[in-house]
């Protein structure tokens, strides 16, 4: 025994905290799982390789402990790696296949990075808005979901605000603001006579760019934290 103990390596244990996702299923389960499926369809990798903790307090209150195995199997069937449960006592799972799940996990709430979050950044489909008439003074076109394309001019005193990029096939005489929701957005226009342009929370008014860009086809982009106006022709 003693000899064996000497030859065995020392077990080294390190502490590390991981962020776990906490999901709280709600009754009726049919609707809740349908919503979950839709969300997973929009962001398939969202739960991949992330430990999941299931908050069953609501389920316990709504329908009692008998439904726990059903709920947990439903989550597991969707590829979730269930590391534990919370909101219930260990006795509630006794006798089920899930009896050895940790029930006494400690943790603190961490705000989720919105980029890792649900549907908005769904990369597959970026919606865009097409406007085929002049944008008149006083009109405001706001489209936070994606790009705006305007075939026609944007008048002085009008504003165009996009979650993505702004494309103006005409003279840009009013304001254009791009990149409300996405990084790397740009503004393109055939003729720059704008009052103000803004990308990624940086903006510039007309008196802050040279007269040599006036009237030219220009793109506006954000480059390493600075707004750049570049002639296209």
């Amino acid at each position: 025994m003693d000899a064996e103990a000497i030859t065995l390596p020392t077990i080294r244990i390190r502490g590390r905290s991981f962020m776990a996702m906490v999901v709280a299923p709600e009754f009726p389960f049919g609707d809740w799982f349908a919503a979950l499926d839709r969300q997973l369809a929009g962001a398939p990798g969202f739960f991949a390789d992330r430990p999941v903790v299931v908050d069953l307090a609501g389920v316990l209150e709504a329908v009692g402990q008998d439904s726990f195995p059903v709920v947990l199997e439903g989550l597991a069937a969707r590829g979730m790696k269930i590391a534990g449960v919370e909101g219930i006592r260990p006795a509630h799972l006794a006798g089920t296949a899930w009896a050895d799940l940790a029930t006494n996990l400690h943790g603190r709430e961490v705000p989720l990075n919105p980029r890792a979050g649900a549907p908005p950044p769904a990369p597959a489909h970026v919606p865009s808005l097409l406007i085929e008439r002049p944008v008149r003074s006083g009109q405001s076109i706001v489209f936070e979901e994606g790009d705006i394309t305007i075939v026609g001019p944007v008048a002085s005193g009008a504003e165009v605000i996009a979650g993505g990029s702004v494309h103006v096939y005409g003279a840009l005489r009013g304001r254009a603001i791009a990149g409300l929701k996405t990084e790397g957005a740009r503004i393109f226009c055939r003729k720059l006579e704008a009052e103000m342009v803004g990308v990624d929370q940086l903006y510039r008014t007309a008196e802050n760019w040279g007269p040599d860009l006036h009237g030219r086809a220009v793109q506006v982009r954000c480059d390493r934290g600075a707004l750049r106006l570049l002639a296209l022709d």
Binding site: R136, S137, G138, G157, A158
Partner: peptide
Amino acid sequence: VRDSDRIIGM
């Protein structure tokens, strides 16, 4: 001209 543009929008 700008005011007229506003009115055209309306």
